[in-house]
C-alpha cells in the first residue's frame, strides 16, 4: 500500500513539471498551429541559468530562499527573452511558409541551443545545490519532501494564474481571438505579432520554472536534460488534446502518474523481467496509443478551430 501512495506522490510531482512544460507547447500550437520543438531546450536553459545564479550568489551568504527567488526571477527573464528571440528568428519569417519549414527550424534551434549550452556550461553533470530544507515528511508510510511539496504548490498556483489570465483579462481574450481567427482579431485592433510574442514569453517563463523544479528535485542539471523532458511534455500535451490548456494540465499529471505507477509495478507484473529503468517506455507507449486511438486527445478538439 505504501508503494502505491509513494508512486502516486512521485507521479504528481513529475506530472506537475510535465504540465507546466506541456502548457508551453499547447499555447503555441493553439495560436500558431505549430509544434515548438525547441521548447524542451528552454527548460534546460532555465535550469542552467539558475545553476549559474546559485554559483554566483554562493559567496554572499544569502538565505537559500532568497537565492531561490533570485534564480527563479533571472531564469524566467532569460527564458522569456529566449522565447521571444526564437519566435522572431526561427518562426516569424516562416509564418506563411509550408508547415514543414518551421518544424525544421524548430529542430535546428533545438540543436543550436543544446550545443550553445554545452559550450557555456560544459558537458559535465552539475550538482544543483539544495535550496529548500530537505526534511522528509512521512504520510501513511510514503515520503514527501519540501521540494516536492513546493513543486506541486507552485505548479497549481501558476496554472490557476494562467487560466485566469487567459479567461478573465483583455490580453487573454486577445490571445483566444487570435487563436480562433487572426484576420478578424486584427480587424478588432489586436496586434497579432505582439500577442504571439507574449504567448511565447509566457510559455518560456513556465518552462524556466519547470526547469528549476527538475533541477531542485533531482539535484542534477545537464545540457541534455531538455530533450527527453520536452518530448514527454509534448506527449502530455497530445494526451490532453493539443491546443487545449486544461488538456495540457490533465495530460501532464496523468502522464506523470502513468510513468510513476508503471515504473513502480512493472517489476512485479513482469516477474522481474523488466525493471523500473523501463520508465521512459511508458510515456512513448502512451504517445503512440493516443495517436492511434484518439488523435484529438482526451479533451477533444483544440480550443480554437480556425475558420
Amino acid at each position: 500500500m505504501d508503494i502505491l501512495l509513494q508512486q502516486i506522490i512521485n507521479g504528481l510531482v513529475q506530472g506537475s513539471v510535465y504540465a507546466l512544460v506541456a502548457l508551453g507547447y499547447t499555447m503555441v500550437y493553439g495560436i500558431l498551429g505549430l509544434i515548438n520543438f525547441a521548447h524542451g531546450e528552454v527548460v534546460m536553459v532555465g535550469a542552467m541559468v539558475a545553476l549559474s545564479i546559485t554559483q554566483v550568489l554562493a559567496g554572499y551568504a544569502l538565505p537559500p530562499m532568497v537565492v531561490l527567488l533570485i534564480s527563479l526571477l533571472v531564469a524566467s527573464m532569460v527564458c522569456m527573452a529566449l522565447g521571444y528571440g526564437i519566435e522572431r528568428i526561427a518562426y516569424r519569417p516562416l509564418r506563411n511558409a509550408p508547415r514543414l519549414a518551421p518544424l525544421i527550424t524548430a529542430i535546428g534551434v533545438s540543436i543550436v541551443l543544446q550545443n550553445l549550452a554545452m559550450i557555456i556550461w560544459g558537458r559535465a553533470y552539475h550538482a544543483f545545490p539544495p535550496l529548500l530544507p530537505d526534511s522528509p515528511h512521512i504520510i501513511a508510510g510514503a515520503i514527501i519532501n519540501e521540494v516536492q511539496i513546493a513543486i506541486i504548490l507552485v505548479a497549481v498556483v501558476m496554472m490557476t494564474g494562467l487560466l485566469l489570465l487567459i479567461h478573465r483579462t483583455r490580453l487573454g481574450r486577445a490571445m483566444r481571438a487570435v487563436a480562433e481567427n487572426p484576420a478578424i482579431a486584427a480587424l478588432m485592433g489586436v496586434n497579432i505579432n505582439a500577442v504571439i510574442s507574449i504567448t511565447f514569453m509566457l510559455g518560456s517563463a513556465l518552462a524556466a520554472v519547470a526547469g528549476i523544479m527538475v533541477a531542485a528535485n533531482y539535484g542534477i542539471v545537464h545540457y541534455y536534460m531538455g530533450s527527453i523532458l520536452g518530448l514527454k511534455a509534448f506527449t502530455a500535451a497530445v494526451l490532453g488534446g493539443i491546443g487545449n490548456l486544461r488538456g495540457a494540465m490533465l495530460g501532464g499529471v496523468l502522464l506523470g502518474l502513468i510513468e510513476s505507477l508503471g515504473a513502480g509495478y512493472i517489476g512485479d507484473l513482469s516477474g522481474g523481467f523488466f525493471g523500473s529503468n523501463y520508465q521512459d517506455v511508458f510515456a512513448f507507449f502512451v504517445l503512440i496509443a493516443v495517436l492511434v486511438l484518439r488523435p484529438s486527445g482526451l479533451l477533444g478538439e483544440r480550443v480554437a478551430e480556425r475558420a
Binding site: T169, L171, G172, R173, A174, R176, M188, G189
Partner: peptide, 25 residues
C-alpha cells in the same frame, strides 16, 4: 469567434479602445 461567448466577442471588439497590457493583466 465561435468558441467565445457572445459577451466576449463584443469585449474583443473593445480591444481597440482599451489599453491594459500584460503588466495590467
Amino acid at each position: 469567434f465561435a468558441n467565445m461567448s457572445a459577451l466576449e466577442n463584443i469585449m474583443v471588439g473593445r480591444h481597440l479602445r482599451t489599453r491594459t497590457g500584460i503588466w495590467g493583466a
